[in-house]
Design a protein around this nucleic acid. Structure first.
Length: 202
DNA sequence: CACCAGGTTGACC
DNA sequence: GGTCAACATGGT
């Protein structure tokens, strides 16, 4: 696994994720970016900023249809508005999560409607600085090219077990995978793929 | 015009 | 356990 990381880092350089000013902005971005381009998420986040809604209390209380119009550009706007508000209620009630055991916190997040494994782990890693490796579609795809099969849990186990327990590296590695995927996967560039047919030294 | 984007859910088997 | 449509807008 570390070989993949080194290769990507060499190819792309440091990514410095997650782009956000506050942890709660990461939470909001993690929900809004589900199945959605990041550029659209940024527009929505700017809308929320202009209305001073990037804090749990304010976002939890804002009028639903107003919120829907502010996040419309991210698609799935009705469910995302609802999910933003349920997450906001949770974080308004739990201002500090730093004392909570990781798995309890993760289960809490997973119990919120609209927060599945990837979103929960993105929040844990990038907003709350917890050591959880985020698996996304690109990760699974690249792993498949490398001959590593498995669903979310299996892949996550492998990354977490085979890598040093380094939060900064988890952040950087996932960012590298996503940005690599955006550039090379899905664009008829398989011949330039760094990983295809390179099933050795994983 | 088709297809995709830093997924999740509920229905169905 | 797995698979599938629905969710909705904006970019290429």
């Amino acid at each position: 696994m570390i070989e993949i990381y080194n290769k990507l880092l060499e190819e792309l350089g440091e990514q410095q994720w997650w782009p956000a000013e506050t942890p709660f902005e990461v939470v909001v971005g993690a929900i809004l970016t589900q199945r959605t381009r990041w550029e659209n998420v940024e527009m929505a986040i700017n809308n929320l900023k202009e209305h001073n809604l990037l804090e749990p209390d304010a976002l939890a209380k804002v009028d639903r249809s107003k919120l829907e119009s502010l996040v419309k550009c991210t698609g799935f706007y009705r469910q995302k508005a609802e999910r933003l508000q349920t997450a906001s209620v949770y974080f308004a009630e739990n201002l500090s999560t730093s004392e909570m055991p990781l798995e309890n916190l993760r289960n809490d997040l997973l119990s919120l409607k609209g927060i599945g494994k990837e979103t929960a782990d993105s929040i844990l890693l990038y907003a709350l600085d917890r050591p959880k490796f985020v698996i996304d579609a690109y990760t699974a795809r690249i792993c498949k090219c490398l001959g590593i099969s498995g669903g979310y849990d299996l892949l996550q186990e492998r990354f977490e077990n085979e890598l040093p327990n380094d939060i900064a590296m988890f952040k950087e590695f996932h960012a590298l995978i996503v940005n690599y995927g955006k550039e090379f996967c899905n664009k008829h560039k398989c011949d330039e793929c760094l990983f295809l047919n390179q099933k050795n030294d994983v």
